[in-house]
Computed example of a mutant assay.
Amino acid sequence: MSAPDTDVEPGTVYLVGSGPGDPELLTVRAIRLLEAADIVLHDKLPGPEIIESLPEDRREDVGKRAGGERTPQSEINERLVELARAGKSVVRLKGGDPFVFGRGGEEAEYLAAHEVPFEVVPAITAAIAAPAVAGIPVTHRDHASSVSFVTGHEDPTKPESAVDWEALAATGGTIVVLMGVGRLPDYTAALREAGMAPDTPVALVERGTRPGQRVATGTIETIVDVRDEADISPPAVTVIGDVAGTRESVADFLRNDYGAAADAESEAAADSEGED
């Protein structure tokens, strides 16, 4: 990282959440900052329509790229400081909310340690947005008075999981797992072993708020097979708890612009009818 130019007034870094993916769900503050920024450092999770709306000469991709390559967090931190010290107005654009499994907290600490001014711009996290547009409330007076947000993709360097699945199973509230499609067999098994009823409803919401959104539903016991049969893939949110069962009563009347493709369970039904 280059030495700071002491003659240049440092710019501000804006840690901006892009929301769940739909450009219309960006906050007004986020839109204004994106329009005014000298440079935008973005991940892959912001919706493609949001990224493509930015001029190519004012955006840098610091997310995961083809071949599994990704920009190390240390390099992102250093780049933010470098640009700010050059007097730039910098937007660090993240999927969802910057402080919900977005590593925004780490970047804020790094910026503060290097005396770089920053602002946090909250956004709608996919943890509540994806279930909502699928007709699933994460809390409900009759079904759940608490909700727990869990990452399904922990730091691989951790010696053991920091998620206490036994405690979560005992709470009786809703569990929302982000980035957990691949590890679905692991944590559903952990919840069953912890005593969660095998008929507990589960929903998978793929590409929530984006074109082609799909929803697949099942139970703790069946959801892995449902995932495989429907070919649900990331990005997807897992909702575990009685609230997931409420979708059935509202799905026929739910209207949004996201389900360009039919729900996964509806597609499966249509395929069966066609085979008969």
Rank of each mutant, 00 (worst) to 15 (best):
S161E: 07
D276P: 07
P122A: 07
R29A: 12
P46W: 11
R247P: 05
V163C: 06
A269Y: 02
D155K: 06
Y187D: 04
V150H: 04
A170K: 14
G105F: 05
D7G: 08
R141A: 13
E109S: 13
E109H: 11
R207S: 10
A130H: 04
A123E: 09
E221M: 03
G173Y: 01
T27I: 10
V215I: 12
T71C: 13
V177R: 06
A126V: 04
E49N: 13
R103E: 06
S2W: 05
A262M: 11
L15T: 08
P198K: 05
E60G: 00
E109Y: 01
L111F: 02
I39Y: 01
A123W: 03
D61M: 06
E115N: 14
A167H: 08
A130R: 02
G102I: 02
A264L: 02
S146C: 09
A262F: 08
V116N: 09
A260P: 00
A262Y: 04
S146H: 01
A190G: 04
M179P: 05
A3R: 13
E60Y: 01
D228M: 04
E166K: 15
A261N: 12
G95A: 06
R85E: 15
R59E: 00
V100W: 06
I223E: 07
G67E: 12
S53E: 12
I124A: 14
P211R: 15
V138H: 02
G102D: 04
S74Y: 06
A260H: 15
R214V: 08
V16L: 07
F253V: 12
L204E: 07
S272W: 10
I128D: 04
A236I: 03
T222I: 07
S146T: 14
G245R: 01
H153L: 13
P198D: 15
D5G: 05
L54D: 03
V8K: 15
R141P: 10
A230M: 10
K88G: 01
T219R: 04
P234F: 06
T151A: 09
F149T: 07
T125A: 04
E248H: 09
P185D: 12
I76A: 00
V243P: 02
G172T: 02
L80N: 03
R227C: 13
S272T: 11
